[in-house]
């Protein structure tokens, strides 16, 4: 068993290595494409280090753009889940709320969050409010859907048990409904996070003066592919890191494992 595991780890390492090697060969050895549009992995690594201190051509170091992006995304995301999760729970638990809010929600939901960008820019300008609102819209939808589904999937037997022990409707929600929906809610938080991060990049590319999306967009205009890739890699890394933090939080908070 262990030998097999080792074999697959080796294959995986070799595969990543080959990927980088082919990238290197295409870019630097055979020079299939001009290095301004297709930089080698080494060029990208150099650009990464350089971008930590240099502000040209996009007016900021990597750190500054990253902090600008994080500020916006966390603001929009937190707002989205603070409003979305309770709303989803209420919709799932109280039939009246469900009947009134669900149709409204279903009317607005099909519009992709990115589609809100022009309206928000027109109304709120290109500052943090417009972007945070767009991210809010992206984050709130999955948060609502998952909290709603999680509550709806509560095992009715558990609800009956709580009821026969004399729990009120609200107590039952608190003690049975929400705990059993927690795994679903967390899955929603993860989807929300991915959607927020994606919306941020789009919003920053369209209208911004700082941030990672702005950075890659500016570097496109001056044709610096190495900086674009630095931006993309940073976006990917930070996105993965945020998801990882959320997963760690989930493991601590969700007791008794996921209910199958």
């Amino acid at each position: 068993m262990k030998e097999k595991k080792l074999k697959y780890t080796l294959i995986s390492t070799a595969s990543v290595f080959c990927f980088l090697l082919i990238w290197y060969l295409i870019a630097d050895v055979f020079k299939v494409f001009p290095s301004s549009t297709f930089p080698s992995p080494f060029k990208v690594a150099t650009a990464f280090v350089r971008k930590l201190t240099v502000t040209t051509p996009d007016g900021g170091t990597l750190g500054k753009h990253l902090i600008a992006s994080l500020k916006v995304v966390l603001l929009g995301y937190l707002l989205g889940i603070v409003i979305g999760v309770p709303l989803g729970i209420l919709m799932g638990w109280y039939r009246r709320v469900d009947l009134i809010v669900k149709p409204l929600f279903d009317l607005i939901r099909p519009i992709p969050p990115v589609g809100w960008i022009p309206l928000m820019i027109l109304w709120l300008g290109i500052g943090i409010q417009a972007k945070a609102t767009v991210i809010f819209v992206s984050a709130v939808t999955p948060a609502i859907i998952n909290a709603y589904t999680g509550i709806k999937q509560t095992n009715p037997v558990h609800i009956w048990v709580a009821r026969t022990f004399g729990a009120s409707n609200f107590e039952t929600l608190l003690k049975v409904g929400i705990p059993s929906a927690l795994p679903m809610i967390f899955a929603g938080l993860k989807v929300s996070l991915g959607a927020s991060w994606m919306a941020l990049v789009a919003a920053e590319m369209l209208a911004s003066t700082e941030g990672l999306g702005y950075m890659i967009q500016m570097n496109r205009m001056v044709g610096k592919a190495d900086n674009i890739m630095v931006g993309m890699i940073t976006i990917g890394l930070v996105g993965a890191l945020l998801t990882y933090i959320l997963e760690t939080l989930e493991k601590k908070l969700v007791k008794g494992g996921r209910n199958k």
Binding site: M205, I216, R220, I228, M229, I235, G239
Partner: peptide, 14 residues
């Protein structure tokens, strides 16, 4: 982890 939309600048360049 790289969102699809983050490929836009590179795609336009390519």
């Amino acid at each position: 982890p790289i969102p699809g939309l983050a490929w836009i600048p590179l795609a336009i360049l390519w």
